[in-house]
Design a protein around this nucleic acid. Sequence first.
DNA 1: GTCACCATGTAAAGCGTTACATGATTGT
DNA 2: ACAATCATGTAACGCTTTACATGGTGAC
Lengths: 187, 187
Amino acid sequence: MALEHAILVSLLEKPGSGYELARRFDRSIGYFWAATHQQIYRVLKRMEGEGWIDVREVAQQERPDKKEYSVAALGRAALSRWLHEPIEPESVRHELAVKIRGAAFDDPAALIREVERYRQTHADRLARYLAGERRDFTGPQAPVPDAPDAGRELQHVVLRGGIAYERMTVAWLDDVLATLKGLAPGH
Amino acid sequence: MALEHAILVSLLEKPGSGYELARRFDRSIGYFWAATHQQIYRVLKRMEGEGWIDVREVAQQERPDKKEYSVAALGRAALSRWLHEPIEPESVRHELAVKIRGAAFDDPAALIREVERYRQTHADRLARYLAGERRDFTGPQAPVPDAPDAGRELQHVVLRGGIAYERMTVAWLDDVLATLKGLAPGH
DNA sequence: GTCACCATGTAAAGCGTTACATGATTGT
DNA sequence: ACAATCATGTAACGCTTTACATGGTGAC
């Protein structure tokens, strides 16, 4: 249960509305923690009730008003507490792995197209991550080497993790395709 | 929603009781699809009601009786239907990535011990996978090259995926550790 | 005697997904 | 007209997690 903590991190990086958070969860933060706007609005309300975040009504021109949330002292404390808790091994859900083992009892060749499609989405994601890395993490580093920007370094190492994950996945899917094609010669 | 399909695959590989399934979900199948015994018992009941699986009461000596489940024709059909459905991109939950970005607003050095512990669990898992590969997938292959054992090949490619994942994770965690240590010189 | 293993469940609370709902503005 | 974007929600249902519950056997 850490959606609230992901929201705290995102609001510390930049305050914003529920809608803006929902869009961030379709992009940067969402690459390693998924959430829909319905979840976000529900959790924001609870966090506000618990005093973790402050709200400010912002009137906008030619757009609906929005509620801008920012992290309160209680929220910072909650985040700090959570950061010091031990990391539990996360539970895994690799649907494709289940399907591959299931294919032994069906037609393995029927999976080939699906795996190719799946491989494409991971290759696309890898390309997107690499473009983001070039955009945000090349060029001038922090000017003084003794005082690096911790946030930037940490965001970069998380992105490198995403890149390593996608590279590994694409390579494994090539292995899967070769295996499936080896079982069904003539395709 | 695919716990029922993971159970079907596991029961096709070998029929067994709810308890035995729960143990398999702590081992082989559980490496890519986690489930607790409470979930399993509930789903088994529903699957039995839908006619996907058959039950057989087995009396045992010096042990409680058990209910042995096996896949019925309706279950095989349901699995086949599911295998032909498109694979949806899975939603991700990388708690550690959230913590790393959160560490920018706290003490990054405090994460080092946790990441080291986390790295150890992944290194252990990698060692276990490699031992399993040596045990189950070396030595004589199927005697006739034209008739390979599809199930064995498919189980092996899934295991290779687990190995690739753990290797990648351990390497990334080394990167994370180097980054954290670089931010806090003198630790 | 206590712990681990075998074997099966119930109950409550919280979390996640899907569908529905509203209403303004901007672009084609 | 229609779709997309901005902005915020409610409702229903199902899944997951955690705790509780029972009862026998075998090993140390």
